[in-house]
């Protein structure tokens, strides 16, 4: 499976000021994010710092991060809207 790639963090240049200041418990270890791929397609995830979600374009879903813990189960995933894809 050569299409398996790693997570890339999206830079936060578009986020309004103040949003980057996260409370301690909501910070995810960047080393952990690097390890993760989409559990359904095993393809790369894009980290959206504003919505605190890991987006899988291939599966068309977003996995939420709650209190610093990525929720990577199929039933925790949110279906992406048409314009998010």
């Amino acid at each position: 499976m050569s299409n398996r790639e790693r997570v890339t963090a999206v830079s936060e240049k578009n986020s309004p000021q103040g949003v980057t200041q996260q409370s301690d418990e909501s910070i995810v270890d960047p080393k952990l994010l690097e390890l993760l791929v989409c559990p359904l397609t095993k393809t790369r995830l894009i980290y959206n710092a504003q919505t605190k979600e890991l987006i899988s374009k291939a599966a068309g879903v977003a996995f939420p991060i709650r209190k610093g813990i990525p929720l990577m189960t199929p039933d925790a995933a949110r279906q992406l809207d048409g314009d998010e894809k």
Binding site: R4, R6, V37, C38, P39, K42, M72
Partner: peptide, 16 residues
Amino acid sequence: PCVVADEEFLPFSDGT
């Protein structure tokens, strides 16, 4: 470091 995931759908890439 912790991830909520199902053992049947592992969210880790090959050879990591």
